[in-house]
Structures are given as C-alpha cells and as structure tokens.
Amino acid sequence: MARVLVTGGSGFVGSHTIRRLLADGHAVRATVRSSRPAPLPVETVVADLTSDDGWADAVDGCEYVLHVASPFPAVEPEDENEVIVPARDGALRVLRAAHAAGVRRTVLTSSFAAIGYSGVFDRPYDENDWTNPADPLPAYVRSKTIAERTAWDYAAEAGLDLVVINPTGIFGPVLGSGLSASVAQVKAMLDGTMPAVPKASFGVVDVRDVADAHVLAMTTPEAGGHRFLATTEALSYLDVANILRRRYPDAPLPRPRTRRPGRPTQDVRHRPHPHGPRLETPLPRRSHPRHRREPALTSQMRVRPVDAGRTPATTRRDPCSACSVP
C-alpha cells in the first residue's frame, strides 16, 4: 500500500477520500488549516494554498498526491482574485511540490464549473468541453477553470502524471463538523430557512462516488492524462425537497417559489454549479442541464454510482451537527 497526501483533509470531499484510502489500507497524510483539524485519525501537516510554507514537508515521502483543497466563497467577492489567485497558485504550489518530491501521480479535484458554463446547447457535456474563463461568470467558476487549465499546462511542461476529477453538485453524508455549500443547502431546506425554491436544476453526484473516483484515478494506470466528469443526473431544487420530504415528512421543507404578478420569473443558469446554483445570482432561463452519464468513470475505473434520487436524503442524520455515514 502507498503513502498518500490529501490536501483539504478537513473538507467534505477530502474527509470521504481519506476514509476510502484508509479502508483500502493506504497510509494517509492530510494538509489542514490550523483551525480545522481532520475529522479522521491521520497524520496532518499545516499548509495553506496562499503560502509556500509546509508543502515540501507535506509531500515528503508520499507516492501520490490528491489535491482536493480549493477556496469556495460564501458570497460572491468584490474582487474575484480573492478566489482565483489562491485556487490557481495553490494548485501550482501543490503540483510543483509533488514534482520535486517525485510522486508517481497527482489527482486534482476540479469541477463541472470548468466544463459546462460556456456555449453547449445541442448535446450533452463531456470531458472535451471547457468553460471559457473570459466569459462573465462567477468568481468560483472562473477560479476552477483557470486553476485546472494552469494545472494541465504545468503537467505538460514538467512531465507530471496528472488526472483530474470534475464533479457536479456533491451531496451525501457528512463526516466532519463543517458544512459544504451543497450540505448547507440541504440543511436550509430541512430547518426552514429556505422557505421556497427557485425553478433551477443542477447535476448531482454522491460524495462517496467522488471519493471512489479519486482513489481509482490514483491507481488506474490508463487514467493518466485524462479528466473525468463525475455525475449521475440532474435534479431540480424541488426534486431535492421532495426527496427529503419522503424521508423527513415533518420537516418544514420548501415549496416552489411563486411568481410575483407582473414580474418575470428568473432562473439560475441551467448548467450546474458544482455545489448547486447560487440562489442570489439570477441568470437567463435555459434548458435543463445535460451531462454524459459518466461512461468514463463506469467503464475505465468501474465506479458504480449511487442513485441520485437517494443521495440528498443521506446528507442528514442531524443537519445541525456532525453526521456519520449511515
């Protein structure tokens, strides 16, 4: 078994990836910010995407690096570089440290944000599609696109073995105390702070499938040099609320948002945000999102996806505290 570095070990995807690695018998080291220790018992190193400090120690002795960490703004920043710069430069710091340490392969967590926010309306999206970062898009979408492009450019220049995972909206059970944006939306539905939902859809993938994809991307020889779209199907906000309503009938779950007289309905952009569309960002109405139903993951790396119709309900045991895997 190998020693693996996981960046962002205290996060939603990072903690599930660590859990899967430990179950497979790998030795795991995780980078964390000092204020958020990893929720699982692994070796930790403090390292920040905005600083060179700590990265050489973090990768020392590791055979693989899974770079999961990336900044996600709670609200749209006034200066987009608050998100873009740490995402891009942080990826470069990790890749450079991995290359200097002679790791066998690096797996980068990107997003559907880097695939499907520009100009595809006549067919499903796939791994050949790219968001154009020059388009007027939210800072997070541009940050993921720019960071992934930068990572591929560096990998080509340095001869680094790189694989990229591009998930859509990630839902599922929580291992730590922090809530991702997607889990926070489920919590808001369950506790009544989201009383109504917009008419919008987004792609859904189970966090455990995303973790499996990272580990298989690490160990599958033929995955090198490829990106993998991780998704199952599109759900609307109302679909998610109805799934939760079947499991938690007494919860104050939202109903469809009603249209105000004389005011046109505004929808969030149809292409799914990686953690669900931003409620506060009205964009022109489009058709429903379409993705390829992950044949690359299922055929090349044998991921067996969890049914999207069940995933949102697994997000909650107690949405106000840390949750365990059912």
Score class of each variant (00 low, 15 high):
D126M: 00
E78T: 11
T168Q: 10
Y64T: 01
S287K: 06
Y154V: 04
N132Y: 05
A101E: 12
A91K: 07
E76K: 12
D60V: 07
L179C: 06
A56G: 03
R247T: 13
R96I: 04
L21R: 13
A230Y: 15
T109E: 03
R263H: 00
V75C: 01
Y125M: 12
P326V: 11
R293F: 03
I165G: 01
S111N: 07
P198F: 02
H99V: 00
H273N: 08
D79G: 10
G25R: 08
V204C: 15
W55D: 03
I170K: 05
D135K: 04
A91T: 15
A91S: 15
H226D: 13
P41E: 05
P256T: 01
L244C: 07
V240D: 03
D250S: 15
V174Y: 11
V268F: 02
L137V: 15
L162M: 12
T145S: 11
P41M: 05
G262N: 05
A97W: 15
R19Q: 15
A181D: 11
D206F: 02
P221Q: 14
S287H: 05
D267H: 09
D135G: 01
N81C: 01
H16K: 04
R247F: 02
N81M: 06
Y64M: 09
T258L: 14
A213D: 14
P256M: 01
M301E: 05
T50M: 03
R302C: 07
L244A: 09
G159R: 12
G159L: 14
R123D: 08
S35V: 06
G90T: 12
P326C: 14
R293Y: 01
T150I: 02
Y117G: 04
D89H: 13
L162P: 11
L216M: 15
H99M: 00
M189K: 07
K199T: 09
G54V: 05
I165R: 02
L253I: 01
L279W: 04
V42I: 10
L283Q: 09
V68H: 00
I146A: 12
S34A: 05
I115G: 04
R316S: 11
E233S: 13
Y117M: 09
S70T: 13
D24L: 13
D307T: 05
F12S: 06
H288P: 06
S51T: 03
N242T: 10
P295D: 05
Q266T: 01
L137C: 08
R290Q: 08
N242D: 12
R259N: 00
D153Q: 13
L279E: 03
L179D: 09
D161K: 10
T265Q: 02
V103A: 03
V303E: 07
A200S: 15
T109M: 03
V204S: 12
V94D: 14
R310C: 03
F112Q: 11
P86N: 03
F112L: 09
A134P: 02
E63I: 00
H270I: 00
A322V: 14
I146W: 08
Q300Y: 08
